[in-house]
Write a protein that binds this DNA or RNA. Structure first.
Length: 864
DNA sequence: GCTAATCTCC
């Protein structure tokens, strides 16, 4: 009864060609094997002809292609006689529609499985990325043909098992062009472009698919010259060939060449048009993208999404929304793009709204929402959603693993990341190239640089992204020399540095204070690698010069930039002004940034701190007021750490943690010890104009201090304490944590929104050479290591000499008198005490001379 | 005439 009802429903929703269903009794379940056989026998002599069966089979295929499994089943069940093709079409259709169990049931019940059936099942497992089952099936097959071998080969290839793919290739009894291409694709897809190239050159008669594959491999490696050579050598070209080369140029910013080929191309399909749109979008040319989009004859969802993504990038959510509403069929990507857009423009509520109302979510939706929370300072919501995602059972395939890993990166969930790594290995996804890069990035961003290095070593063929990630990782952890060593290795390995590499290299120099080296790289990168400096490179240089006190040269560089300095560049100058107490310049930079980004809360706070540090309380107050009036929201500061798979979050003065009493008591104890050790709190950094004692109190309970205290209490001894803060670490906390690391004898790794700090034995890996507050930079400064390039006259020279001297002598400054004078740009005559790591060893005196540097440094050792 | 294996776009 119920079955009949269902059938009627199905029947009315199907649009099948008019076949005669009268001759068979409809069934809504599979006949048993035994029954089938007898039925086949019974109908053996009926009037059904082979050509009728073929017609029914076509109907099955058509339904399956449209995702109408029930309709296909109805046809199948109503057939008076079925051939093995009918079964195969059903099984194949089920697999295409991800009805895995139904496919297997039918396969098991099928009376006479032929080679075709086995192959269908095999490829089903392969497409389902279930390689173990695929292999087991492959071994069980009564006979195999070239299709079976090729399916197995491509299965391994697509899942990162290049060596296994090669093994299959070598073992197979016969090879055809698909086998050859399968191996070639294995190399290309897994980034082993040199192996691919060797294979390609070893043989002449490749089909067009392989030519395209080889060309696509070069494009993915951004080796456009090689790609173009392949394209030019091709005897025949199809649409894919044109699309690949056009995409190649478009993705690498060479839009003129892309456009030329686009006009020249004899055939343009939806891919060609879309490639042009996303090319223009990626190069920031939204109007050109839109005009192509409007001209485009038939758009698919990818074209719409590309255009929406363009508006999203520019934070034009109004335009994005308009297209989103207008597009005929939205897919998951469309929703995901919109979610990302709202999240990036800070409209987290709208993002969440879309997330909740979307018809289907994939792992990217989850990641986008989690990333959105995390970027908007809602770390708790981000973590919460991450747990919810796993509870929701979001299936982790290769790409969602990558997404999940990058989520771990963005919230620095190292333990979760490690668990994912374990599951990756279990699933057999850990080899292969882009998962390797994601793992590497995860460990870098979660603060485990040693694990990162291991992950890096395990990537078989490192591509430019792998190298860049490693260099950048070291840079962010303050290991400048290591970063530059990796850079040298990269060149030795024959990988050509790209613009991202140079950003990583310059920021390594900046984080390590290697001014000379940085300048050298900057000025030679065009000559050596053909890389034109972009605004990011300029920002790195302004940062590098500015932090080192060379504000004039930094400004000159900005004046001579080929493009107008952007907010980030001005931000670097502002940061440097702050370090060196140049309120005037800082103010100028901040004003310009306000005009460019009126809602950037970080800038208000920075300027406010700049005023506060120089005692201009009323100006600091005005900034806060202005912020309030303009409705700029301050991102609340949070610190968190993972202990035994739980994330513990703290905000300033937090008393909500169950162990609050323990934490605060411990901090009081610690405070006494800190004072004994000679720590003085930097009250200049507290923004508000409050009483001194109150300021000390406020500093004592910053979120990072609470988190560190909790870590010391609850992370097992011997393990590093890993704390993450969503904003930049407070300078006073930075200073205190250095002392704390010595007092408790623990390694404390703190990730702020800019870089990593490894605190150990009383010092930090950043060497205090990071954007700090007021003119306090030298107060707490161990081992300043810097060199200054061609210095402009006055104080930078003194710095240079002083720093070089101290670096040479492996000593640190222990007094701020000298540097205070330097910052006043007065003549340097003061005396400073020099210390080895913790002990005063002598007195440094600087005297004016007539030599090139104008200064002479001398250390008079203390005799004990 | 139907069913299986290789390449390009968000």
């Amino acid at each position: 009864m119920r079955g009949n009802y269902l059938l009627r429903q199905l029947h009315s929703s199907c649009s099948i060609p008019s076949y005669n269903f009268q001759s068979a009794k409809p069934k809504n379940s599979y006949p048993s094997k035994k029954k089938l056989t007898s039925q086949n026998n019974k109908l053996q002599n009926s009037s059904t002809t082979d050509s009728d069966i073929v017609k029914w089979n076509i109907a099955i295929t058509t339904h399956m292609r449209h995702g109408q499994c029930e309709c296909a089943l109805r046809v199948f069940n109503s057939m008076p006689r079925r051939s093995s093709v009918s079964y195969n079409a059903m099984i194949s259709g089920y697999l295409q529609n991800h009805k895995f169990d139904l496919a297997r049931d039918l396969f098991d019940k099928m009376p006479d499985r032929d080679l075709f059936s086995w192959n269908v099942m095999l490829t089903g497992h392969v497409r389902n990325r279930d390689l173990n089952t695929a292999r087991a099936l492959f071994e069980r097959m009564p006979e195999r043909d070239i299709v079976s071998w090729n399916a197995m080969l491509s299965g391994y290839a697509q899942n990162g098992f290049v060596d296994e793919a090669r093994e299959i290739f070598d073992k197979m009894p016969h090879k055809n062009e698909i086998s050859w291409n399968g191996l070639l694709a294995a190399y290309v897809q897994n980034g082993r472009i040199e192996d691919a190239k060797r294979l390609f050159e070893s043989k002449m008669d490749w089909t067009i698919v392989s030519w395209n594959c080889m060309m696509g491999g070069f494009v993915r490696k951004r080796r456009l010259v090689d790609a173009r050579r392949v394209f030019n050598r091709m005897a025949v070209r199809d649409e894919v060939s044109w699309n690949t080369i056009i995409t190649g140029y478009a993705q690498n910013g060479e839009m003129e060449e892309a456009r030329r080929l686009f006009e020249e191309s004899p055939i343009r399909d939806v891919f060609t048009w879309t490639a042009m749109i996303s090319g223009y979008v990626q190069n920031g040319k939204l109007d050109e993208a839109r005009s192509i989009f409007d001209r485009m004859p038939a758009k698919n969802s990818v074209s719409w999404n590309a255009m929406i993504a363009g508006y999203v990038q520019r934070k034009r959510m109004d335009m994005a929304r308009e297209l989103f509403e207008a597009m005929p069929s939205r897919n998951v990507s469309s929703w995901n793009t919109m979610i990302t857009g709202y999240a990036r423009s800070g409209d987290i509520a709208h993002a969440r709204n879309l997330f909740d109302s979307m018809p289907q979510r994939d792992s990217i939706s989850w990641s986008a929402m989690i990333a959105g929370y995390s970027q908007n300072g809602c770390s708790e919501e981000a973590l919460h959603l991450f747990v919810e995602m796993q509870r929701d059972g979001e299936r982790l395939n290769r790409s969602s693993f990558t997404c999940a890993l990058s989520t771990c990166s963005s919230i620095a969930a190292l333990e979760l990341g490690k668990q994912l790594h374990g599951r990756l290995v279990k699933a057999g996804y850990h080899t292969g190239w882009y998962v390797g890069n994601a793992l590497l990035a995860m460990y870098c961003k979660c603060g485990s640089i040693d694990n990162a290095h291991d992950a890096f070593q395990e990537i078989l063929e490192k591509d430019v992204v792998s190298w860049n990630t490693m260099i950048h990782g070291y840079a962010r952890h303050g290991f400048g020399e290591e970063a530059l060593t990796v850079f040298e290795l990269m060149k030795t390995a024959g990988i050509r540095p790209d613009d991202a590499t140079m950003v990583a290299v310059l920021s390594a120099c900046s984080h390590a204070g290697l001014v000379d080296k940085g300048s050298e790289y900057f000025y030679s990168m065009n000559r050596d690698y053909g890389i034109t400096a972009n605004s990011v490179h300029y920002t790195c240089m302004v940062d590098l010069l500015g932090r080192a006190g060379n504000l004039e040269e930094a400004q000159n560089l900005m004046k001579n930039m080929p493009v107008k300095p952007d907010a980030a560049t001005w931000g670097a100058l502002l940061g440097a002004s702050r370090i060196h107490g140049n309120t005037e310049l800082g103010e100028k930079a901040a004003r310009i940034i306000f005009e460019m980004e009126p809602h950037n809360s970080g800038m208000y706070i920075l300027l406010s701190k700049l005023y506060a540090a120089s005692g201009r309380w009323s100006d600091a107050g005005k900034m806060r007021l202005e912020m309030k009036n303009k409705g700029v929201k301050k991102v609340p500061g949070y610190s968190w750490l993972e202990v035994q798979n739980k994330i513990h979050t703290f905000k300033v003065g937090d008393t909500s943690h169950p162990h609050t009493d323990k934490i605060y008591n411990f901090l009081e104890e610690l405070d006494l010890k800190l004072k004994e050790e000679g720590y003085v709190s930097s009250t200049k950094l507290v923004m508000h104009d409050v009483e001194e004692e109150e300021k000390v109190h406020m500093l004592k309970y910053h979120s990072e201090k609470l988190a560190v205290a909790y870590g010391i209490l609850f992370v097992p001894p011997g393990r590093p304490i890993r704390v993450i803060k969503n904003l930049r670490v407070c300078e006073d906390c930075h200073n205190a944590i250095k002392f704390i690391s010595r007092i408790v004898g623990r390694l404390i790794i703190l990730r702020d929104n800019h870089r990593f700090h490894h605190f150990e034995g009383g010092s930090c890996s950043c060497r205090d050479y990071w954007m700090s507050g007021g003119n306090l930079v030298a107060l707490s400064n161990p081992l300043i290591r810097a060199g200054i390039s061609k210095t402009t006259p006055t104080f930078a020279k003194y710095y240079k000499l002083l720093f070089l001297y101290l670096e040479y002598a492996n000593m640190r400054i222990c007094s701020d008198t000298l540097l205070d004078r330097v910052q006043d740009r007065k003549e340097v005559q003061g005396k400073v005490l020099c210390c080895s790591k913790h002990e005063v060893v002598g007195e440094l005196s600087l005297t004016q001379t007539d030599d090139e540097d104008g200064m002479y440094a001398n250390v008079r050792p203390y005799s004990l």
